[in-house]
Design a protein around this nucleic acid. Structure first.
Lengths: 216, 216
DNA sequence: ATATTTACCGTCCGATCGGTCGGTAATCAA
DNA sequence: TTGATTACCGACCGATCGGACGGTAAATAT
């Protein structure tokens, strides 16, 4: 693990579903960690994490850099909280599927649908996650969790192949990667619309399982 | 256009197919622009463009930063030359397809195959291209050329739909994006093997057109 | 009124960044 | 031997970076 920072920050904190909420807090009014995180993630995605300075984030919030450091311990922690939001969502999607006992191909379809929904719901967090390169300990930890997820997808494809539901002329690992390559590419162009995520999940599963070609 | 730099650098330069070649040059022996570019692109992809300093590039080559500036005008030019390598390859792939007069779906398949091969051949350049965010004029120019490419793909899908070869229950633009989302995702995991690119292109076209599901 | 809690600010710092400049070293052509 | 040509280097510069620190401002709770 290598704590690397001070003690603070348990593991899963903040955005209580990203709602600014109407709770009247105690001290002087101002931004809370949720607002700070939202602004930071938006900027990270616009310009890239490395290309965004803490001063950029502060300015977007209308405060100074020193004020920003009152809310967050450092730039890396901002990144860590954000990617954890994405990874937790993806893990939930996977956990729900693992509770199922249906045919492997049905669980695979369910996983794809769930993942598309998570991607749409937490678009900015997932976008940030998928761009992490592994430069720091925080990023490497994120890559590790991604690899665990990917391995589970491959397992699922292998099972579906063993059950005869998925073609054997494409390697399972390759199929899994192409599948989630397609899913993950949503971050490049999908923009939230009401209900848009569900029909998008339809499109993805159709292309993935039945292909684009018309058949008689 | 907005030249932004000095006069130099015509448009398409260097890597004469990336071969170090045996040509005996004139002055003092050392690195040429091709070697510099290769080292830079590799580092850009490992750590990200912004996170890579010119000193990092110089050190990887075993020279100093000032020596590096003898070969290249600046960091942005390094990026520009690199992404142009990728874009030129993709444009060639598209141009070959546009010369064809077969059915739209066949041209689409040809484009996918060509694109996969370009991706495999110029993997590092394309990787860099696909990560560009648009922070500078150089990057925005690259994004512009990408958008032109994407628009042509959508047109092709629309034609194939009009010809009845591609299903109508998926929006053409969405299909085009999912298609190249899948293709482009190769940069995340594909690593060169002899002949591997061709069978990878097979896998991609199979999944794209016929889907993963087995059918009786 | 006073204590507590929360948010904010100005100022400073060492490190690193992309880039410049003037000079030196090694090779080939004449 | 001299002149091009090409490659390299040390020293320097202004700007910006992430972050530290001590102090102030506004709200609620007592």
């Amino acid at each position: 693990m290598a704590h690397e920072n001070g003690v603070r920050t348990a593991a899963h904190e903040v955005p209580e579903s990203a709602a600014p909420s109407v709770r009247p807090r105690r001290g002087r009014p101002g931004h809370d960690l949720g607002a700070v995180l939202a602004a930071a993630v938006r900027l990270f995605n616009e310009r890239g994490y490395e290309a965004t300075s803490m001063d950029d984030v502060a300015k977007r919030l209308g405060i100074t850099k020193s004020s920003l450091y009152h809310h967050v311990a450092g730039k890396q922690e901002l990144l860590r909280i954000a990617v954890d939001q994405a990874l937790d969502g993806l893990d939930d999607a996977m956990a729900e599927v693992e509770r199922e006992e249906t045919a492997a191909i049905d669980r695979l379809e369910m996983l794809i649908r769930n993942s598309v929904l998570v991607l749409a719901e937490r678009l900015e967090y997932v976008t940030l996650l998928l761009r992490v390169r592994g430069n720091t300990a925080v990023e490497q930890q994120a890559l590790l969790r991604r690899r665990v997820f990917d391995a589970k997808v491959t397992k699922l494809v292998e099972q579906a192949q063993a059950e005869g539901a998925i073609r054997h002329d494409v390697d399972a690992a390759t199929a899994a990667r192409l599948l989630f390559g397609m899913v993950n590419s949503l971050i490049e162009w999908y923009r939230p619309r009401r209900g848009g995520a569900a029909e998008l999940a339809d499109a993805v599963t159709i292309v993935a399982f039945d292909g684009l070609r018309t058949r008689s």
